[in-house]
Amino acid sequence: MSVLVLIEHEAGAPKDASLATITAAQQLGEVHALVAGEGAEAKQAAETVAKVAGVAKVLLADDKAYGQMLAENVAPLVAGLMADHDALLCNATSIGKNIAPRVAAMLDVMQVSDVLSIEGSDTFTRPIYAGNAIATVKSSDSKKVMTVRGTAFAKAAASGGSANVESVAGPTDAGLSSFVGQETSKSERPELTSAKVVVSGGRALGSSEDFHKLIDPLADKLGAAVGASRAAVDAGYAPNDYQVGQTGKIVAPEVYVAIGISGAIQHLAGMKDSKVIVAINKDEDAPIFQVADLGLVGDLFQIVPELTQKL
């Protein structure tokens, strides 16, 4: 089986989620990695991906139509390449979730979303009901299209491979959409979905000011990424891309520190695969303590500064 993996890249390197998707793809067959983008950065990303262990071939699609990964332009490219592939794997990230279903519909394939494990060439497990149930599904489509949960697969080694890079061309700008701008939160901290340690704050922090005053220094001490509950994001204490949960980001770090987070099922769905969960909350009956390995009951406004200071 030949498997096409849509690579997400930034600054000339594949994102961690794509390395995990490459691992998943290896369980299905020969891995062909598609790097779509524009100019020198895309070229550099293709060369970096060629060195990733387990990649048999890199396809480089360099066109300004692919620079912003607009689904209207990238989906036709991918759908065209699927003539020579049996499966398409994308990351279950905002880019993958945007593009994969568009490709699936163009191919008349029912996509399998957020794959947790590959049980066979046509059988996969995936979470439903916010992770409250895990379904095993079998696809009858001749080609498979799926998005893969990055935290469920180990990252492929960044070196050890020596694939060839082939240039491919696809349709140019579809003329349906254009990129206007972006507001990205720049941070020196590790990326939330691949950080070893995550410190998350909830509504109990009470304000944006206190959120950053308490959470940021602790995260810096632990070399951690910062996350937030939906309640904290909705209240404006933290930006949207901090949100951990069913509809936000799915994280599975070595250590997850939940501060002032009660533990709604939607939040637990995004972090319960963390290796060790630490919870700090003043309500000893908060549901977060039912999943926490280490709990500390008390006032976070006292505990967090003390903890930061003692670390």
Binding site: V112, F289, V291
Partner: peptide, 27 residues
């Protein structure tokens, strides 16, 4: 439908851990 659901199970449950007595213990 193109997908057949073979089975649906509950996810592995986490066990509640220990409650610590102080910040020092957590450190």
């Amino acid at each position: 439908p193109r997908l057949t659901t073979l089975k649906v199970v509950e996810p592995a449950k986490r066990q509640a851990g220990v409650k610590l007595g102080s910040v020092d213990e957590l450190v």
